[in-house]
Design a protein around this nucleic acid. Structure first.
Ligand SMILES: Nc1ncnc2c1ncn2[C@@H]1O[C@H](COP(=O)(O)OP(=O)(O)OP(=O)(O)O)[C@@H](O)[C@H]1O
Length: 733
DNA sequence: ACTCGAGCGGTTTTT
DNA sequence: CCGCTCGAGT
C-alpha cells in the first residue's frame, strides 16, 4: 500500500521547518506525541525525493529494532518503492559495519555476537578459574560493570588506568574476559560500539569512506544515547554537522545502561551553529492524559520545560482501580477489556498493558488465557530463549564461527553422542585455545581411539554445515541441520511434542526471513535474532492485547493503556535506587507510559502481591499522589473486610475522588458459564433474545432478534438460556 | 557419560 | 514461584 506524500498536509509548521532545514546541525527537542519520529521519517523521504540523496547516503538510527522496522516500512510506503536504506539501531549499524570492515579494524568478520546469558556463563567460568567464589563475585555484577565500562569506551586496560572501579577483582576478570572474547572471536553488545569507535579512530581511511557514504545522519530518541554512541556520531558527522537528532529529556529511561541526558546539552556545544526546533502540539492524547502526565513530570528537576497542547478534546478521566490481589487486578483489567471490546468497539490490539517488570506479565497471561482474551507478550520470556531454539541457533553459530566455544559446549552432546564435558575441553584445548578453529582438530592422542570417531564425526558435521552456510537456501539448510544433527529425531524419541512445534515455528521464521531477504545467508538471520533479542514479529500479529514493559513501550502508542502494579516497591521499583536521580528516572518511566495513551488511561494496583510465592502487602505508588486528583476516578474493589485502606494512613491526592461505576462489585464476577450448544436460544441482559450460531473456545456468536450479530466471551457475558420461547431445543433446523 | 532431584538464590529495566 | 547449579547415583 502506497500512501501519498504531502508534506504540508502531514506536518505542521515547526515540523516542516525541521524537515526542510539543512544549513546546520539540527536538534528537535520536544515532548511526547509531538511528532518527532514523524519528522525523522519525513526528513528521510524529503532528502531522497527532494534533495536527490540516494538512500545509500542516509543513516537513520533508532532505539529498538521494532522502531527501525516501523520507520522503514513507513519510509518505503511514502517513497512508493523498496529501498536499501540503513534504518537501524546503533548496535545493528555497528555490527553491519564491522562485518564489512572488520578486517581493516583487525576483527575477524565472522565474529559471533553474544547475549548476556552467554556473557554471564563466560564470566562464571572465569571467576571460577581465578579461584573466586561465584556466589560472592557475581557474574551478573561483573557483566554489568564491564558493559558500563564499554559504554565509556574503556577496555580493561583503560578501565584500570581510569580507576573505573574500586573492586580489585574487576580488572582481572575484565582482562581475562577480554582475552577469551578475542580468542573465540566473540563480541558482546558493548563491543559492537566500542570496536567500531576504535576502528574509526584508528583507521582514517575507513572513517572517511563512511563519511563519504553517510551524507546525512538522523537519530531518534537521542536522550537515550550513551557516551560511546555519541562519540561515534561525532566521528561520523564532525566537523560537517550533517546530522539531525530528536529527543525529549523527559523520556530518558535508560541511564542504567549508560544513557546520558547530558548529551542533549553537549550537542549544542560540540557542534557549531546548532539549530533548535521545538514542537508543541501533541497529536496523540486527549487533554486529560496530557494534563495528568505533565503534572506528574513537573515533579522532576533539571528539565528544559515544555508547553504541550492538544486540539483533541478533554477526553475521559483517568481511572484508577485498587484491587485486593494481583490476580484480581488482572481479572479487573480482563473485565474492563471485555467491556471495551464488546461495548465500545475497541479491538484487542488497541489495548496495551504496561508493567514495570517482566514477571508481572505472568498473572495476566494466566488470567487472560482462562477468559479467552487473546494477548501477546512483547519481549517476555522469549521464543528464542527456549532451550531447543537456543540449541539450533548454537549449531548455526558454531557453523558460522567455528571458534565459538560457548556454542560448541552447548550442543556438542545434544543429542547425546558420547561427547562429555571432558572431551569438549580436550577439543577446545587443542584447537580454539591455540587460535585454531575446531575444524583443525586432528590426530589427537588424549582421546581414546575407540571414542575418537564420535568427535571427528561431530566435527565433520559442523564443517559440512559451515561449508553450506554461505551457499545454501536458509530453510533448506535448517532442515538439513534438523536431520543430520539427529536433533529432531532425538526430540521425537523423547516425545517432546511442544519443542518440535517450536522448531517448526523457527523454521517458519526462517522461511519468512528468506522471503523478505532473498539471497541472504542464514548467518544474517542469526544476527538479526541476536540483535533483536527475540522480539520477532513473525505470526505474532493479529488482534491481540499487548503485554509489555514500560521500557519496551517507548515510542509506541495505543488507544487504551493500562499501567498495572502502581505500588510502592513495584513502581518505583525497590531496586531502582533511592537517590533523587534514580527516582526521577522512574518518574520519567511513568511519564513515558502515560503518554503512550491516546484515548483512555487506566492505573491499577493490588493491595497484596505475590512475590516468590509469598504474599506481600503493598502501599500505593507515590506517583499516584503526584497526579491531579480531579482528573482521577478512583475505585476500589469492595474491601469491606480489608482494613488496610482504611487504616492505611496514606489518604493522598486521591482523597475525595468519586467512586466510578455505580455499583462497585465486591469482586469481578466470575459468572457461571451457561451450558450452551449451537442453535440454543438465549437471553442477553442488554441485547435481548437471540440464537447461538457459533461456539468456539468459550466465545459464542449470537444472532439477535433485531438482526444484530455479536460475539461474546461466555465467562463475562450476562447470558442465560431462554426457557420460555426456546420450547423445543431442536426447533432451529 | 548421563539423568535426576535437592537445594539454593533471586528477581528491575535492554541493545 | 521458578530456574539453575551441583552432586549423587546409574
Ligand atoms: N502534523 C501531524 N498531524 C497529525 N498527526 C501527527 C502529526 N505529526 C505526528 N502525528 C501523529 O502523532 C502521533 C505521535 O507522533 P510521533 O510518534 O512522531 O511523536 P513522537 O514525538 O515521536 O512521540 P514520542 O516521543 O512520544 O514517542 C502519531 O500517531 C503521529 O502519526
Amino acid at each position: 500500500m502506497v500512501s501519498s506524500l504531502h508534506y504540508e498536509r502531514d506536518l505542521n509548521q515547526s515540523q516542516l521547518e525541521a524537515v526542510y532545514y539543512s544549513d546546520s546541525p539540527l536538534l528537535v527537542l520536544a515532548g511526547a506525541g509531538s511528532g518527532k519520529t514523524r519528522v525523522i521519517t519525513y526528513k528521510i523521504v524529503y532528502l531522497i525525493r527532494e534533495r536527490g540523496l540516494s538512500p545509500y547516503n542516509i543513516l537513520a538510527v533508532t532505539f529498538t529494532n521494532k522502531a527501525s522496522n516501523e520507520m522503514k516500512e513507513r519510509v518505503v510506503s511514502l517513497l512508493g518503492q523498496e529501498t536499501e536504506i540503513w534504518i537501524k539501531t546503533f548496535h545493528s549499524t555497528a555490527a553491519a559495519i564491522l562485518r564489512n570492515k572488520g578486517n581493516v579494524f583487525g576483527i575477524d568478520p565472522h565474529f559471533t555476537i553474544i547475549d548476556q546469558q552467554d556473557q554471564q556463563s563466560i564470566l562464571r567460568k572465569i571467576i571460577k578459574q581465578l579461584n573466586l567464589e561465584p556466589d560472592v563475585y557475581k557474574p551478573g555484577k561483573y557483566a554489568y560493570l564491564i558493559e558500563r565500562a564499554k559504554d565509556m569506551l574503556l577496555d580493561a586496560e583503560g578501565a584500570h588506568l581510569e580507576g573505573f572501579s574500586n573492586d580489585s577483582a574487576f580488572f582481572d576478570i575484565y582482562r581475562v574476559y577480554e582475552k577469551i572474547l578475542k580468542m573465540e572471536n566473540l563480541l558482546d553488545f558493548g563491543d559492537l560500539i566500542l570496536q567500531l569507535s576504535r576502528g574509526l579512530k584508528s583507521c582514517p581511511e575507513a572513517l572517511s569512506e563512511l563519511k563519504k557514504r553517510f551524507r546525512y545522519v538522523l537519530v531518534d530518541e537521542f536522550q537515550d544515547t550513551n557516551h560511546a554512541q555519541y562519540e561515534i556520531l561525532k566521528l561520523l558527522t564532525l566537523p560537517e554537522g550533517n546530522i539531525c537528532v530528536v529527543g525529549d529529556e523527559d523520556q530518558s529511561i535508560y541511564a542504567f545502561r549508560g544513557a546520558k541526558i547530558e548529551n542533549i546539552l553537549s550537542f549544542s556545544k560540540d557542534y557549531n551553529g546548532v539549530k533548535i526546533i521545538k514542537l508543541e502540539e501533541n497529536y496523540r492524547s486527549f487533554q486529560s492524559i496530557l494534563t495528568a502526565s505533565s503534572h506528574l513530570i513537573s515533579n522532576n528537576t533539571g528539565r528544559f520545560g515544555k508547553n504541550l497542547y492538544t486540539k483533541k478534546g478533554e477526553g475521559e478521566k483517568i481511572k484508577f482501580f485498587r484491587a485486593r490481589s494481583d490476580r484480581s487486578e488482572a481479572r479487573f483489567i480482563a473485565e474492563e477489556i471485555h467491556n471495551l471490546v464488546f461495548k465500545n468497539d475497541y479491538r484487542y490490539s488497541d489495548i496495551a498493558i504496561f508493567y514495570r517488570v517482566n514477571a508481572q506479565s505472568r498473572v495476566f497471561e494466566s488470567v487472560f488465557s482462562r477468559v479467552y482474551i487473546p494477548f501477546m507478550v512483547v519481549g517476555g520470556p522469549r521464543f528464542y530463549e527456549r532451550e531447543e531454539i537456543k540449541d539450533i541457533l548454537a549449531y548455526l553459530r558454531l557453523a558460522i564461527n567455528p571458534m565459538d566455544e560457548i556454542s560448541l559446549s552447548r550442543i556438542a552432546n545434544k543429542p547425546p553422542r558420547g561427547i562429555g564435558v571432558k572431551t569438549v575441553e580436550k577439543v577446545v584445548k587443542s584447537t580454539i585455545e591455540r587460535g585454531l578453529s575446531i575444524f583443525s582438530f586432528g590426530e589427537n592422542n588424549s582421546i581414546p581411539r575407540s571414542r575418537i570417531s564420535r568427535v571427528t564425526d561431530f566435527i565433520e558435521l559442523c564443517a559440512e554445515l559451515n561449508r553450506m552456510v554461505p551457499v545454501s537456501d536458509p530453510p533448506q539448510l535448517l532442515k538439513l541441520l534438523f536431520d543430520t544433527s539427529g536433533y529432531l529425531e532425538w526430540l521425537h524419541r523423547e516425545g517432546e511434542e511442544e519443542r518440535i512445534k517450536n522448531l517448526e515455528e523457527l523454521y517458519n521464521a526462517v522461511e519468512e526471513f528468506s522471503k523478505e531477504h532473498p539471497g541472504s545467508p542464514i548467518s544474517d538471520f542469526v544476527e538479526e535474532v541476536t540483535l533483536s533479542q527475540g522480539g520477532i514479529e513473525g505470526d505474532g500479529q493479529g488482534d491481540r492485547v499487548y503485554l509489555i514493559t514500560l521500557h519496551n513501550a517507548k515510542g509506541l502508542e495505543f488507544p487504551v493503556v493500562f499501567i498495572a502494579g502502581m505500588e510502592d516497591g513495584v513502581f518505583p521499583h525497590y531496586l531502582s535506587g533511592d537517590n533523587v536521580s534514580d527516582l526521577q528516572e522512574e518518574r520519567r518511566l511513568c511519564y513515558v507510559g502515560m503518554t503512550r495513551a491516546m484515548e483512555r488511561l487506566y492505573f491499577s494496583a493490588a493491595k497484596v502481591r505475590k512475590l516468590y510465592g509469598r504474599s506481600i502487602e503493598r502501599g500505593l505508588s507515590q506517583f499516584l499522589m503526584e497526579l491531579p486528583s480531579e482528573l482521577i476516578d478512583y475505585s476500589d474493589e469492595g474491601d469491606y473486610f480489608t482494613p488496610s485502606l482504611i487504616s492505611g494512613r496514606r489518604t493522598s491526592g486521591l482523597q475525595g475522588a468519586s467512586l466510578w461505576g455505580k455499583s462497585p462489585r465486591s469482586r469481578p464476577r466470575e459468572r457461571e458459564v451457561p451450558d450452551l450448544e449451537v442453535d440454543d436460544r438465549v437471553i442477553h441482559e442488554q441485547y435481548g433474545r437471540g440464537k447461538v450460531v457459533e461456539l468456539e473456545k468459550g466465545v459464542a456468536s449470537i444472532h439477535f432478534e433485531d438482526g444484530k450479530r455479536m460475539k461474546f466471551l461466555l465467562k463475562y457475558t450476562p447470558l442465560r438460556k431462554d426457557q420460555e420461547v426456546g420450547t423445543s431445543e431442536s426447533e432451529g433446523g
